Every structure is written in structure tokens, then in C-alpha cells.
Amino acid sequence: MDADRAIARLLREHGRTYADEAGITLRDKPAPLYQLLVLTVLCSIRIRASTATAAARELFGAGMRTPRAMADSSWQARVDALGRAHYVRYDESTATALGEGATLVLDRYHGDLRRLREEASGEPERLRALLREVPRIGPVGAGIFCREAQAVWPELRPYFDERTLSTAAALDLPHTPAGLARHVPPKDLARLAAALVRAGLKGEAAEDLRAA
């Protein structure tokens, strides 16, 4: 299967972004960008992505969709929301991290992560460094945020981290960001990154693609 056909199949079968799975309609607006940050915090530990997205939906369903709402919520309310999604073992520490992160976003960026983008001055590495100042987010988490945020922040494109590039190489696809970007329009780059993550997590999906 040539690269164009393989990538088209990846997008068709696995190209749902994690933001979409978490119920986030991602736009360059304060609330959805903050919700993506919450999802990033939830994904930044060793836990199933489906559990993290379910936890995000529980938090948002409980009204914690903005940094102000998160900061004003009680620690126990955050723990309870995480518990409903079976986000166990890390529920208490994550509830603390979410509260501290909301306070940081309010104090430093006035609740608007577009100010973080402005502070980075269009430099992806600087943006990732700023993201790592948020409690719980390390290099991997910063990559998760950038993979998804490239849908609305063009300066991040094309963003494929080591995990996605490793999966691309295993599928005999181009395994550089520029090489992958040649096969999809800019609007589909975040979907392709998510599809590669999902295919990498589902070994049988990767085997099916290689065998096609």
C-alpha cells in the first residue's frame, strides 16, 4: 500500500483527535484551549487514554470548563469527578495539580492561553517550555498538547513527536514531520498525529495496515 492510501486509511479508521474524544470543540479561544490543557494534564501519567478522556468529560460535565471554574471548585469535587471516570491511584494528586494549574493560568495568563502563545513568540520550543511550567506537564505532556493544538496554532505545524514518528516508521510511512505533512492538508495534521498514536496503541491495527 502506498503512503497516500495508507494515510487515508489511517485517517478514516483512527483519525479522531483526543480533544474530540474528550468533548472539546477545539478553537483558538480561552475555554477550549484550557480544556485541552486539562486533558493534557490527565494524559501525562501512565494511564489509558480512554480513561483520561473520560475523566476530562466528567470534569467538564461538572462545570470545570474554565480555569476560574476549576480554581473555584473544591478539591473533593475534582476527586469525585475523576473517580466517576475510574481515574484511580492518581485521582488525589491530579486533583491537586489541576487546582494549582488553574491558578497558574489565571495568575500568569489571565485565564487565556493565547497569552502563553504570545509569550512564546511563535517559537515551538519556547511554547513547550512554558507548558512544562504547568504542574504535572513534562516533555511528553507538552508534546501531547502540541500534537492537538497544531489544529488551531499553525506555527506548531507539522508536529509529530517521537512516538508518532516511530509508529510511522514501523508502518513504512515517511517518518519525518515534513515527510508526513506532504501527504495531508494542514487541517488534517492533528488528526494524522492522533491516528498514528492510536495505531501504535492498537498493535493489530498496525499489523492490518502493514498487511494491506
Rank of each mutant, 00 (worst) to 15 (best):
G111P: 07
E100R: 15
Y90K: 07
T66E: 03
W75G: 12
Y109I: 06
E100N: 14
Y90D: 01
R78N: 04
E58T: 10
F60E: 03
S74D: 11
D112T: 07
D72A: 14
R78T: 14
R65L: 05
S93R: 14
H110I: 00
V88C: 10
H110D: 13
S74R: 10
Q76A: 15
S73C: 09
V105A: 08
S93Y: 00
G63T: 07
W75K: 14
W75E: 15
V79E: 12
E92R: 14
Y90Q: 06
R89Y: 15
E92M: 10
W75D: 15
M70R: 05
H110L: 08
H86I: 05
E118P: 00
R89I: 14
R84L: 06
M70A: 11
R114T: 09
A71S: 13
L82D: 03
R68S: 13
D80I: 08
D80Y: 05
G111R: 01
G63A: 03
G63M: 04
M70P: 04
D107M: 10
D107H: 12
A97S: 15
R117G: 06
G61M: 10
A71N: 10
D91R: 11
R89C: 04
S73Q: 02
R117N: 05
E119G: 03
E92S: 13
H110R: 10
A102L: 01
P67E: 03
Y109P: 00
A71R: 14
A77D: 15
M64W: 02
E100W: 07
G111Q: 04
S93D: 09
H86S: 13
G61L: 10
L116F: 13
L59W: 01
S93K: 12
D112F: 07
L82P: 00
F60D: 03
S73T: 09
Y90M: 08
A85V: 09
L82T: 02
L113S: 08
A71F: 14
D91V: 02
T103V: 15
D80V: 09
L116I: 08
T103A: 15
R117W: 12
Q76W: 08
D72K: 13
R68W: 13
A95Q: 01
L82H: 02
A97T: 07
E100M: 12
T66S: 09
F60V: 04
R78P: 04
V79W: 04
M70H: 08
S73A: 15
L106C: 09
L59K: 01
R78G: 03
G111M: 05
L98C: 02
A71M: 07
R114M: 08
D107G: 11
S73M: 02
F60Q: 02
A97I: 04
H110Q: 13
A62C: 05
R68G: 13
L113I: 08
L98R: 00
L98E: 02
